[in-house]
Amino acid sequence: MPSHHHRPESEVALRVKAIESLLVEKGIVDLAALDAIIDTYEHKVGPHIGAQIVAKAWVDPEFKKRLLADGTGAISELGFTGFSSEHMVVVENTPEVHNLIVCTLCSCYPWAILGLPPTWYKSFAYRSRAVIEPRKVLQEFGLEIPEQVEVRVWDSNADLRYLVLPERPDGAEGWSEEDLATLVTRNAMIGAAKVQPPAAADSLVA
């Protein structure tokens, strides 16, 4: 294999273009398939899907019960399935327990529910540190976890994919499922953030 050391971007881009043209020429892949794959992850799937699942669990206690008992089954009730989300486990954050998801060996992540992972999730820093010093990692995200709260780290090394069900914030009583979903962030569904109350969310935007 040729060395991949510190090649300029233009060189990598040219190499990728060469491989693409060979794959297409040999009939291994159609350009339209590549476009469909890229379009799906750029425009169709993303954290808005996970946010709908979380909001439904907040307003529907029976759904929440099913979601925590059988993530895959409950999520498929909403029609959300897909690649790298075939087997889902949902873990609930409470005043007593804070859950954090990582994949130390690669960067496994529920693509169909949250989209492709952010750079920080794929970083060597996160993959190495989340398991040995989760509280320090969470501090870097601005989250101070009180000593008496249990931190549970989930290393998603196998074929199960994880989603954190964050705590419902105060100040959104009586909100519709649709409005609640707008409060739920990607990081909150990985365990790297809490869902902010609506006023705080507004002031962040302002």
Binding site: V131, I132, P134, R135, E147, Q148, V149, E150, V151, R152, V153, W154, D155, S156, N157, A158, D159, L160
Partner: peptide, 12 residues
């Protein structure tokens, strides 16, 4: 390490 904390992993 914190006596409160734990790690969950899927093993065969």
């Amino acid at each position: 390490a914190s006596p409160k904390d734990s790690l969950y992993i899927d093993l065969f």
